[in-house]
């Protein structure tokens, strides 16, 4: 499958725009773009599970945090070079997802959701209590970032490259033979089993893919912040990325990326006026659930169809 032309043009334009951000934009815009890129990847990774396999994880922050902490600790405490620390962090997130996923994919639906949350709170508790390693609730402060990318603009380009490659890989996975079959598993697990698909193994692989790419996003965040904090493992972080995914639209590949950008901007805007960001998120979630279950992208498609009919 080739990307539809409209989507391809938008992707190229967005990429070109991002490349120019440091040239044309302010420092603030560069920082904002870096953060949004990281959250885009985080949301897209979750959507492999939600949108493509039909399993809702309430604990996706766990793998984000494992990636972040591992990268931070290996770079700083053990002074590993980036070329080892970064892949090791990603690998560990994937392994953690493989372990947790083994238990979670035995269950479906509500049980699955509960178990993902329970595991994520476990990861949070470990990050909180293992002070010697993680810094506990003070956070892991002062991450050593290699000089080559330590700086606002270099780090932005580093993030852009890593996120672009990751998204490209995710795109291929979601549009692969695996991705197609995964959608069938989402649509009708019983039928998929009866055409010869081991649906549990499919969901397990999806869980690992999602966890691995969340780990990449987490590692990027740890270096960006020069620190890693327990809040990144907390359930509110899982909630936030879930809302990003739904807001953009879980039935389209790029929807969650759009949702991430939208929610992040909304966050930046809202916290200037109120400390009650969770309420804003809750209200957004209610609106999505009751009125636009397909998210912004789905809404756009609907409007386009209506307009086409009107012509």
């Amino acid at each position: 499958m080739v990307m539809p032309r409209g989507t391809a043009i938008v992707v190229v334009l967005v990429l070109a725009g991002l490349l120019l951000v440091p040239v044309l934009g302010s420092n603030y815009l560069v920082d904002l773009s870096t953060e949004i890129l990281i959250y885009m990847l985080f949301a897209l990774s979750l959507n492999v599970l939600i949108g493509y396999s039909g399993n809702v994880s309430f604990g996706h922050a766990a793998y984000f945090a494992i990636g972040g902490y591992t990268c931070a600790i290996l770079l700083t405490t053990y002074e590993w070079p980036l070329l080892l620390a970064f892949p090791a962090a990603v690998l560990l997130s994937g392994l953690a997802a493989a372990f947790v996923g083994y238990f979670c994919v035995k269950l479906t639906d509500i049980y699955f959701a509960m178990l993902t949350l329970a595991f994520a709170m476990f990861v949070w508790a470990v990050a909180f209590k293992w002070r010697d390693m993680t810094g506990g609730d003070d956070g892991f402060v002062g991450v050593t970032v290699p000089a080559l990318i330590d700086g606002r603009v270099p780090y932005f380009y580093f993030t852009l490259v890593v996120v672009s490659i990751s998204i490209a890989l995710l795109w291929v996975i979601c549009h692969s033979a695996f991705g197609r079959t995964l959608v069938a598993v989402r649509e009708n697990r019983t039928r998929a089993g009866f055409v010869g698909v081991n649906t549990r193994a499919m969901r397990h692989v999806a869980f690992v893919v999602a966890g691995t790419f969340a780990g990449i996003a987490g590692a990027l965040l740890a270096m960006y912040n020069h620190g890693m904090y327990v809040e990144s493992a907390f359930w509110t972080e899982s909630a936030q990325v879930l809302i990003m995914t739904l807001l953009g639209g879980m039935y389209s590949f790029f929807g969650p990326a759009m949702g991430a950008a939208l929610l992040y901007l909304l966050n930046v805007f809202t916290i200037q006026y109120t400390e009650y960001w969770p309420t804003v998120q809750g209200v957004i979630l209610l609106i999505i659930l009751l009125f636009v279950p397909e998210g912004v992208v789905g809404l756009g498609q609907k409007i386009r169809q209506q307009l086409a009919k009107a012509d």
Binding site: M1, I173, H175, S176, A177, F178, G179, R180, T181, M202
Partner: peptide, 9 residues
């Protein structure tokens, strides 16, 4: 169906 990098279409 476990081919993650073979495009499906």
């Amino acid at each position: 169906h476990f081919k993650l990098f073979t495009l499906g279409a």
